[in-house]
Computed example of a mutant assay.
Amino acid sequence: MAKVSIGLRGWRFDEDEVFTDEGEFRPLDEVPDDTRRRLIRLTYLQGKPCDACYLIHGEAEKKRCNPAEFVYGEPMEEVLLCADHEADFLYWYREAGGSDHRGEETFRDEFHEWFAAGERAPEGYGGLDHVDTGTDELPTPPDPAELNRRLNENYEGKRKRIDLRTGEIRYEEWDERRGDDEDDEDAVDDVGDLDLGQDYPTK
């Protein structure tokens, strides 16, 4: 079964779990729970800044941060990185004890503390060789509003709402007279712990 990255590199998905034979995203109810939660979390992470850049520039200079290209770790404790700082993360993970925190809630915080203390990969330290296998041909993940719409297709009586931050799906009574909720953005913000077969860097 082929593994693919979607949107950000790092998290790897079983292609057959995510896409139909026609190459379209499967309906959310057909995707395994862990995979669904990681996939929805990924839509929340799109466009977020690199963690390392953010630690350097801070909120006041957030616009100077590079957008994230890579995601490592588990949902809700993931580390987002740009190409300039991926090697720093990999060095921390491989050589500076980062792998000891794999799967722990402190994973992200431990890397942040190491980086904020001025630690960096040695000059010339190599990163991972990422191989593109037709990634340009993969569809873009649906945006949060579209995910919420798909989750509620052909669903009557109660409505499912997704939290992108936590990965939770909750149900609530739905009154069609109200139309779309005014706070749909928060509602769609309801799916965080999606797990699409996280691959960790190895030596």
Rank of each mutant, 00 (worst) to 15 (best):
G73F: 02
F89K: 13
D34A: 02
Y91T: 03
R94S: 14
P75I: 08
A87R: 14
C65K: 05
Y54R: 01
E86G: 06
K62D: 00
R36V: 06
V79H: 11
A60M: 11
E22C: 00
F70L: 10
P32T: 05
V71K: 09
D84F: 08
F25T: 08
Y72P: 02
R94L: 14
E22L: 13
M76V: 09
L39N: 05
G103M: 09
H101N: 13
R37H: 01
L55V: 12
L80Y: 06
F25I: 03
R108K: 13
I40C: 09
P75L: 10
G23Y: 02
F89P: 06
V79R: 06
E95V: 15
G47F: 07
G73I: 03
D21K: 10
A52M: 06
G103S: 03
E104A: 14
A52G: 00
G58C: 04
H85V: 09
A68W: 04
I56N: 08
K62P: 03
E74T: 10
D100H: 14
E59D: 01
G58N: 05
R94Y: 11
R108Q: 07
H101G: 12
Y54H: 05
F19C: 06
L81H: 05
V79L: 05
K63D: 10
E78I: 04
I40R: 09
L45A: 09
H85M: 09
A87I: 08
L90R: 11
A83Q: 14
G103A: 10
E24I: 00
D51K: 12
A96G: 09
R37W: 01
Y44K: 15
K48N: 11
D34W: 00
F107A: 08
G23L: 07
S99T: 14
K62S: 03
G47I: 06
E61P: 02
G73N: 06
C65E: 02
R38G: 14
V71E: 01
D29M: 07
D84Q: 13
E95A: 15
I56D: 10
V71G: 11
E86F: 06
F70G: 01
W92M: 15
D34Q: 00
R94Q: 15
Q46G: 07
P27H: 03
R64D: 07
R26C: 04
V31C: 02
R26N: 10
G73R: 05
F70Y: 13
L81G: 04
E77A: 12
K63H: 04
Y54W: 05
R37M: 01
E59L: 08
L80N: 10
P27K: 05
L39Q: 11
A52F: 02
R38W: 03
R38D: 13
H57T: 02
Y54K: 03
P32M: 12
P32D: 05
V71F: 01
R36Q: 09
G98R: 15
F107H: 11
Y54M: 02
I56Y: 08
